[in-house]
Nucleic acid binder design. Structure first.
Ligand SMILES: [Mn+2]
Ligand SMILES: [Mn+2]
Ligand SMILES: [Zn+2]
Ligand SMILES: [Zn+2]
Lengths: 139, 139
DNA sequence: CCAATACCTGCAACGGAAGTGCAATTATTG
DNA sequence: CAATAATTGCACTTCCGTTGCAGGTATTGG
């Protein structure tokens, strides 16, 4: 029934390595989007490049999606099951807290239909809401 | 009636210099958002830093707004009259063309109301639509 | 009009983040 | 077990944004 991480990675044609398992687990246990530096700080023994390329592999195989929250630093989060990143970046919205600087996937909150002028073709939408998160608003 | 650029800058407490007039005119005559490199390439005699600081001044004085279109490179555009960038980044949406790589302010298209979960406070929204622009769609 | 001051500009340098080439190590296949 | 393929680590590069400082230019007020 419940497939292991190893099985999951293999199903996505990603070879299982110690590094990849560690990084996958790290992403899975965090609720917020992470930067490459976050990962670097967590796995100090590993080389930057390896971490970088691991995330890139995950992205290519569509189990991680990239988030541009406007801080200038790319963040990453595991895709939901059934997410269609390969086709278009998934259309849930992201929330960036101006206080704790964390970015959260609001996977339940889909992006509404956006009208564009005649002649423009919309393929993809990035929507980031900035403000104060639930933890920081003391609520 | 019609105020000159000089008068406009002074009204915003920006001292008029040759450089600032040139960059202002450059921004004014372009319909698309520009990068710092765009400006650098246009004014090759001027120093990178001066151009950077000129844009920064314009931004601080709220006559230019910054656009993060997800390319990783910050873009800039003149604010509309009555734009309230000082308070919150103006809430029109931006369109990034995946073909010609240009980013356009859709100042007529305001961002719809976005619901966030309980406990979250929305202060600001960045919405970028990506796709094919009117020129590139051959329409 | 001149001196003091404030502001603007250019040069050099720095830092962070992203990305690449190559060689060494490790895993996979037959 | 040998041949092959993929992964990892190291060194290095590039790009963008940013800052410190010093020289130049404009503004002010006496
Ligand atoms: Mn997400
Ligand atoms: Mn705009
Ligand atoms: Zn927060
Ligand atoms: Zn286009």
């Amino acid at each position: 029934m419940m497939e292991t991480i190893e099985q999951f990675l293999e199903s996505k044609k990603i070879r299982v390595t110690a590094m990849r398992l560690l990084i996958y687990k790290f992403l899975a246990e965090r609720q917020v989007a992470v930067t490459l530096s976050d990962i670097e700080n967590t796995f100090e023994k590993a080389d930057r490049t390896t971490l970088y390329r691991t995330i890139k592999t995950f992205e290519d195989k569509a189990i991680v999606h990239q988030i541009d929250d406007g801080t200038g630093i790319t963040k990453y989060a595991l895709c939901e099951q059934g997410c269609n990143c390969e086709i278009e970046t998934d259309l849930h919205l992201h929330f960036h807290c101006n206080n704790c600087n964390q970015t959260i996937c609001l996977t339940e909150h889909k992006i509404p239909q956006i009208k564009v002028p005649d002649g423009f073709v919309s393929e993809n939408i990035n929507l980031v809401v900035k403000g104060i998160c639930d933890k920081c608003s003391g609520q």
